[in-house]
Computed example of a mutant assay.
Amino acid sequence: MSLPKTLAEDVARNLVMVANLIDEDPDQAYAYSRIALRLASRVAAVREAAGFAAYATQKYAEALAEFRASRRMTGSVELWPVMADCERGLGRPERAMAMAGEPEVQKLDKAGQVEMRLVAAGARRDMGQIDAAIVTLQGPELASSAVHSWTPRLRYAYADALLEAGREDEAREWFGKALEADKDGSTDASDRLAALDGVEFVDALGEGEGRHEAAGAVADEEPEDDDDQDDDDLDLDLGLDDDDEEPDEAPKA
């Protein structure tokens, strides 16, 4: 709204492309975000979109800079968890842990606080503190039977941490609970659960391709038919090589 109409429309189109592509083609989304950033770097929504596009392409230093810029413009704390996760991406889990204890966390809504807990648990695991990571994920949100948008990811992270700690039976239970809550398939809990149960998936398409290749090999071994033999005889009469379509020299009368 702060931009001239034509410029605003151009920026908006690029932001729409960022949103549409960020999951399937993050590199292309990043390219669109750079265009929007070049057109309107003083718009907080543009800086935020550029931050998420950089984050999706693992450009964590760049993402952190954009998130900080957006936060300065808006004063909002909603980007605090993803900023902390950028610190993890930069190999600084201690900073992420420090951010988890800052007053900004108390200003987050429930979804933001759960996200911050996930980041903090990840930072604990980065530092080799697996038991502390498990404790970090425990709480009323994990124990609740209510399902929210963040429930599958919270249960999945807990199951994954339990598995790393060697608590396989408990991990299987929580992967199952994650799967129950994951109606949109946002996690691979079903695959993890199947792996724990020793289930192996067979690539039917790959096997089909193998059968076709085998059939082709058999076909190559089949004898030539009479027409092919006649063609070969004609080639010899005309002085043709196997790989040539023209005679080596003109046939003589």
Rank of each mutant, 00 (worst) to 15 (best):
M127Q: 14
M127T: 15
D131A: 10
A133W: 03
A133P: 02
Q138P: 07
Q138V: 07
G139K: 10
P140I: 06
P140A: 09
E141N: 07
A143S: 14
A143D: 15
S144F: 09
S145M: 08
A146Y: 05
A146V: 14
W150V: 10
W150H: 06
W150G: 00
W150Q: 03
L154C: 08
L154M: 08
R155I: 07
R155C: 04
R155L: 08
Y158M: 06
Y158G: 04
D160E: 10
D160I: 01
D160T: 10
A161K: 03
L162W: 01
L163F: 08
L163I: 01
E164R: 14
R167H: 11
R167F: 05
R167P: 12
E168D: 13
E168G: 07
E168A: 15
D169C: 02
E170Q: 15
E170K: 11
A171K: 02
R172G: 01
E173L: 13
W174G: 05
W174R: 09
F175A: 09
F175M: 10
G176I: 04
A178S: 14
E180L: 11
E180M: 07
A181C: 07
D182V: 06
K183G: 12
G185I: 14
G185E: 02
S190D: 12
R192Y: 05
R192C: 03
L193R: 04
A195W: 02
A195E: 11
L196T: 09
D197P: 01
G198C: 05
V199L: 08
F201K: 12
V202T: 06
A204Q: 12
L205R: 15
E207C: 01
G208V: 10
E209N: 13
G210T: 09
G210Q: 11
H212Q: 11
E213T: 06
A215T: 01
A215E: 11
A217P: 03
A217D: 15
